[in-house]
Design a protein around this nucleic acid. Structure first.
Lengths: 218, 218
DNA sequence: GGAAGGCTGACAGCAAGCTGAACGCCGTTC
DNA sequence: GAACGGCGTTCAGCTTGCTGTCAGCCTTCC
């Protein structure tokens, strides 16, 4: 497995690198945000171990960048014990897990195992629903063979519905995904995006369950 | 979301229940392993919050039972003991996450969000009663293979009956669930919804116990 | 047979949802 | 720096269909 380790503390970084390497993983160790951003954009990692407090910025920016680009690589945050708000922010930004420093290396192994197990056997990233084709890695959508472009927000909504084709997703949930956790929105933005998606994907792709939410018809 | 909370500490349990309920989740709170096992086997939960130290055994047994039956419901362990070995044992037994007591309720929310987000894409838990199929994640119902849509209120009634198939639920109880506390209702609304449900689900699905309430036939 | 409880079709009112349009922000182009 | 285009957000007016209510009928029990 190829792991991106982002950590500026030398002792900890070395220990993690050594431990992971001895478990058979290839570890790229970056000590600054800039290096890490560059690495994350050029290589497809299987896992990112991310320290938040970096000399040239916050690891959260890296995480947001990843998720913003639709990269679903598992991310485990490494953080000091007294930064609960950081951890929450990290999870909300799309992290999969976190570890509180100082942590046991065996625990790190267990967490790595748990996170990657979750992602193992990832099915074909191209999702087909009727004459709708959604390629999650390429972020492209085609309807009856005709490719269509989606904007970032439109994609965010579709992505949420796609996670579970057929499952009901509440409007609140979509809102939470579109906007920062707790950020109140006082408009019908979700409805607007659903409307726009329908115009692009076909009217029947997204089903409204009045008062409850929306559902991608399988 | 339907959450099974397994916790014997009254203060903590109450706080968690209240917090989750105010976030719009339906929480079933069980205080012993036995109760919890029973609940976990009869209802398809979306999430289990599991205390390990219970009066009549270890929560780990419940977790192992779930995984042994192939149940992939997300499980977050709540543990008072800040012991690495416990956490590793939990993760190895198939837990998705853990929280060390005392924990911040906002952090709990964030973890719930992260865990459930992660699981989007799992097969749906479907409850079967005769030729009636109830998909809790899609909030859809099919009778003898024919899919039917339910309205929000209809679903609310069915959900209540579903909690314990075969158990009697009083009309008052349903009324309380349908309407905000104190909201007076001066009609036979419950009867109307039962009637509407029967029209959709089939006449025999809901049994009337005259003078007492209704029961979902298992 | 009478009374109480339960069932259901019909309907008006209204809240939820839809969508075209407008506007501001931001990055790009010339 | 001006013009432009794309995107996100908001708003208003419109449509849709859920909801509570009621009346009249049915069922059960004594």
């Amino acid at each position: 497995m190829r792991i991106l380790l982002v950590e500026d503390e030398l002792g900890l970084g070395e220990a993690v690198q050594e431990h992971a390497a001895s478990a058979g993983h290839a570890v790229d160790w970056m000590k600054t945000l800039e290096e890490a951003e560059h690495a994350a954009q050029s290589i497809a990692y299987h896992l990112v171990l991310l320290d938040l407090a970096l000399p040239d910025g916050s690891g959260l920016d890296l995480l947001r960048g990843l998720r913003g680009r639709g990269d679903k690589v598992p991310v485990i945050i490494l953080t000091a014990r007294d930064r609960i708000s950081d951890r929450i922010a990290g999870l909300n930004a799309g992290a999969d897990d976190y570890l509180v420093k100082p942590f046991d290396l065996d625990e790190l192994s267990a967490r790595i195992l748990a996170v990657t197990r979750r992602y193992a056997g990832d099915p074909n990233p191209v999702l087909r629903l009727g004459d709708l084709e959604i390629d999650q890695t390429a972020r492209s959508v085609s309807v009856a063979g005709v490719q269509t472009e989606l904007t970032a927000r439109e994609w965010a909504v579709l992505e949420l519905l796609m996670r579970r084709p057929g499952a009901l997703v509440s409007k609140d949930r979509i809102e939470d995904a579109l906007y920062a956790f707790g950020a109140e929105i006082e408009s019908n933005a979700v409805e607007v995006y659903v409307s726009r998606l329908r115009k692009k994907l076909g009217r029947e792709a997204i089903h409204t369950v009045r008062g409850l939410g929306y559902r991608l018809e399988p």
